[in-house]
Design a protein around this nucleic acid. Structure first.
Lengths: 241, 241
DNA sequence: CGCTGTCTTGAAAGGACTCAACGCCGGTGG
DNA sequence: CCACCGGCGTTGAGTCCTTTCAAGACAGCG
């Protein structure tokens, strides 16, 4: 089960035979997690990286007093915690929204690969750089957008990412997140998320039925959210020279 | 003038002779910027990385409607925009608070170095990972802390970073930022920053005189801010194996 | 069928923003 | 040397946004 790792890495550009071999030979374990389960606890010293194969996951931070902030949403194909490869301590946790199938790739294996194959090191670094760009956009959204704009923004981002992953059909995608969880992600209370979603629905911007989100008016939605997909760096290639 | 680059990289661990040579041979230009000047504009396609040698700088994002969010503060010794080395487009800008002396290191040189020296690639990747950890903490602060807690949090972070850089004396450090700018950084209006700072001062937590910040009661300040320095990964070393 | 978690709604309180005005200070030019 | 100017910090009042608390409706599941 290493095809996913290979696929993810090759999305940044074709590999040479020896690089391909190296990636293919990385031993990884595939593990299943239930919904609402922690994959990594804050403060853990993990020995493996997590590649999401199936399901929705999220990174989070707890404040000492218990408040929680979700700092990233992860969809299939995402490397969720490359930090551990080089950093001694992990300062945030990783949890699941839905049942998830994840591949654990040992840090030692990734370190070895990057030592032997500079190009592969670049790919992983690039993933981290893109993660950073997305995080800065979240900072901007949290700091400068109103709750209504924020609640519009994150679906925009998720929608584009899912589309790139081929997981959008008829302008609709899965959104298996409770309103309380959205609150933790978008920096608002659950109750306020509820009211805000209602406003977006009654403006005919989105539809939310069961766990499915349908974008009814992309133009007005992305406008309201001041969303532009540049920061996602979709289609980014990694240079060899 | 490449000592700073060498110094920064060696802070993660000693270099081998050939690595040292490689870093030493990187040609970099040193350029001076005035206060409140843009070093990199959003959307630029820069050809060099920026290493801050002297002065305070910040990364920022503008929303289409003009609102601005500051996404990171940079102090001497910081690499401010490693993104450009591998990403095609730069989605945020870099500006100065004070007059700044910066070293521009060509992307091509950094790419070459990382191709030849896997360990150096790791160091740069590590810097990016730490940046990411700091950004996630900002996300948490913006999403879950009240304005008062946030206004306490950022000085905590800055203070610890400056201390690590040897720029704190008698519990006080430079803070050459207007209240309006703090607003853009902490996700609040300038007026509210003013009132909040007054509250912190009248609680005898901090003192703010001219452009100098003095921490009067670290215990209570960091407590209020729910601050813990783990996420800064100070003293992080980079493994060779 | 009953339970539990989630969504929904209302009312009241608190936090943060905007607008506008004023004082202070350093810098500039006369 | 003084008057003026502009940027920054400070204040007040009113409004809007968001939260909290609490209760009820709803739906999925055992």
């Amino acid at each position: 089960m290493l095809t996913p790792l290979l696929k993810r890495i090759e999305s940044f550009g074709p590999l040479q035979p020896d690089e391909k071999d190296a990636v293919a030979n990385v031993v990884s374990r595939v593990v299943n997690f239930a919904a609402r389960e922690d994959i990594i606890h804050e403060g853990d010293r993990a020995s493996d990286c997590t590649l999401i194969l199936e399901g929705y996951a999220f990174r989070f931070n707890h404040l000492p007093d218990g408040r929680r902030q979700i700092t990233a949403l992860h969809i299939p194909g995402d490397f969720a915690d490359l930090q551990g490869v080089l950093l001694n301590s992990i300062t945030d946790g990783l949890g699941t929204f839905t049942p998830c199938k994840v591949a654990f790739v040992p840090h030692t294996a990734l370190r070895e690969i990057t030592k032997q194959h500079p190009y592969l090191a670049r790919v992983l670094w690039t993933i981290t750089l893109i993660d950073g760009a997305i995080q800065r956009q979240w900072i901007t959204a949290l700091g400068r957008l109103s709750a209504r704009e924020r609640v519009a923004h994150q679906p925009c981002e998720l929608f584009v990412r899912l589309k790139a992953a081929g997981r959008v059909e008829d302008d609709s995608c899965e959104l298996p997140i409770t309103q309380e969880e959205m609150g933790d992600a978008f920096g608002a209370s659950g109750v306020h998320i509820n009211r805000t979603l209602q406003a977006l629905r009654s403006s005919a911007l989105i539809e939310l039925r069961g766990k499915r989100l349908t974008v009814l008016d992309w133009e007005r939605l992305s406008n309201l959210a001041q969303f532009s997909p540049d920061y996602l760096h979709l289609g980014q290639r990694v240079a060899r020279d």
